[in-house]
Amino acid sequence: MTRLLELLAVGLSLGMLYALIAMGFVIIYKGTRVVNFAQGSLLALGAYAVARIAPSAGFWAAAAAGIVITVAGALLIRFLLARARGHDHMALAIATIGVDVVLTTELTRRIGPDVLSMLDPWGAATVRLGGVTVPQARIAAMAVAVVVLGLLLALFRYTGWGVAMRAASADAEAASLMGIRLGRVATVSWMIGGALAAGAGVFMSTFPSAGLDSHSSTIALAAIPAIILGGLDSTHGAIVGGVTVGMAKALTAGYGSELGFLGAGFGDVMPYVLMVAVLMWRPSGLFGTREFIRV
């Protein structure tokens, strides 16, 4: 029983990281209908900036700088894509794959053999909660995810941008006809998505992970089942999806010897199995907006 509890805590802690990554994808998708495959390299860019700046300026200043740099990177992608006016979202998503290849190649070259440390204030410290141990860094990640989610909900509800965003995501054409400036919605979405990437990049490189290395950006791929599970355009879906994936991974890894018949390392495949199962049941994820076809 304690083992199950421990593994659930591990899953929750891992899930918080996935949730944070997934939220970045979702915000950008909600505002622009583009799945940003370059999100992984944006994570790495943010973490890389923090790791390089922190030794001289300290963690918090570096984190701020990292966010600025990543937001700038996201905006660059946003304006690049805007040049392709009139393209469909599939083509734009593919374009972000191109951006990802370029950015990852350059970051890999720069990071080299190193494992870069974030020099974050949490270090390897942990908190004991009801018999289970949770790393402080992950508690901070959870706090960031919850605060961002709260802020977003408030933004959606009380600001003009939020209304515009909701309108744009419900029906872009109608929103545009009503005078909503979709360009601004897109810009703000990319900025938030970029900032979330920087945050997620930091937490993916802090304890219990060792730091940032040249493989790091692939972790964003592991968040994709989380996004699909929750629904591409649902922020709270991202959190639910992230935690589900984290739990699934932790439990399959923890009970690996009992699940031996599925083949070693099934924990890595489990999220994808869950994802396909959910999609067969609900084709737009658990909380995603369903597509209706009107004739």
């Binding site: 304690t2 083992r3 421990e6 593994l7 591990v10 899953g11 802690s13 891992l14 990281l17 790393p135 993916m204 219990p208 992970s209 060792a210 493989h215 790091s216 692939t218 972790i219 791929l221 592991a222 991974k249 932790a250 439990l251 890894a253 923890g254 690996g256 010897s257 070693a264 390392g265 924990g267 890595d268």
Partner: peptide
């Protein structure tokens, strides 16, 4: 022997260590 397989993309090995500890 208690073996646990991981992939290069796994970087948070808390679940594996927790299992070995238990």
């Amino acid at each position: 022997l208690e073996g646990i397989q991981v992939k290069a993309t796994d970087t948070d090995l808390t679940a594996q260590v927790t299992t070995l500890k238990s």
